[in-house]
C-alpha cells in the first residue's frame, strides 16, 4: 500500500497565539496539511537544516526579536539546499515598506496579517492556491 505524503508547512513566528491562528486558518483551508512551527529564526533554520524533508512552504513573520524575519529569509535563500522553497513573509503592518523589503530579500510573496481573521484566512487560502502544488 502506498501512502501519499502530507504536504508540510513551516510557520516561523515569535507570537504563539499568532502561530495558533495561522495553523487554524491553514487547517480550514486545507485540512490535510502537516504544520510545524518555530518561534524564532535560529530554531527555524536548525529545523530546516537537520529535520529531514524540507517543507513545501514557509511562512515567516517579518518582525521577530533576535534574528528578524528578513534575516531568516536571507539565510534560507543563501542555503543551497533550502533556497528553492517558497517563502511567504507575513506582517501585521500595513506599510508598503514591509512588502518591498520582503520581495527585495527574496521572498516569494507577502501576506498582510489582516485585522479581520476571516479576511486573513481568505488571503492565506489564495497563497496556498498559488504556492502549494495540488492545493484545490
Amino acid at each position: 500500500m502506498e501512502f501519499e505524503k502530507k504536504q508540510m508547512i513551516l510557520i516561523v513566528d515569535d507570537n504563539p497565539d499568532d502561530i495558533e491562528l495561522t495553523t487554524i486558518a491553514l487547517a480550514s483551508s486545507e485540512p490535510d496539511l502537516c504544520v510545524r512551527s518555530a518561534q524564532d529564526g535560529g530554531t527555524a533554520l536548525r529545523m530546516l537544516r537537520t529535520g529531514g524533508d524540507p517543507p513545501d512552504l514557509i511562512l515567516i513573520d517579518i518582525k521577530m526579536p533576535g534574528m528578524s524575519g528578513l534575516e531568516t529569509l536571507r539565510e534560507i535563500r543563501a542555503d543551497r539546499r533550502l533556497k528553492g522553497i517558497p517563502v511567504i513573509m507575513l506582517s501585521s503592518s500595513s506599510l508598503d515598506s514591509d512588502r518591498e523589503s520582503s520581495l527585495r530579500a527574496g521572498a516569494s510573496g507577502f501576506l498582510h496579517k489582516s485585522l479581520s481573521f476571516s479576511r486573513f484566512s481568505n488571503d492565506l487560502d489564495k497563497v496556498l492556491h498559488e504556492w502549494l502544488p495540488g492545493h484545490a
Binding site: 506582517s91 501585521s92 496579517k113 485585522l115 479581520s116
Partner: peptide, 22 residues
C-alpha cells in the same frame, strides 16, 4: 513610532478578533 503603531498595536487586536470569531 508609525511602524510600532502599525505592527505592535495591531498584532494583539487580530488575535482578539481571530479567537473571538472562532
Amino acid at each position: 513610532f508609525t511602524y510600532s503603531v502599525s505592527h505592535d498595536l495591531r498584532a494583539p487586536l487580530r488575535v482578539i478578533d481571530g479567537f473571538t470569531e472562532m
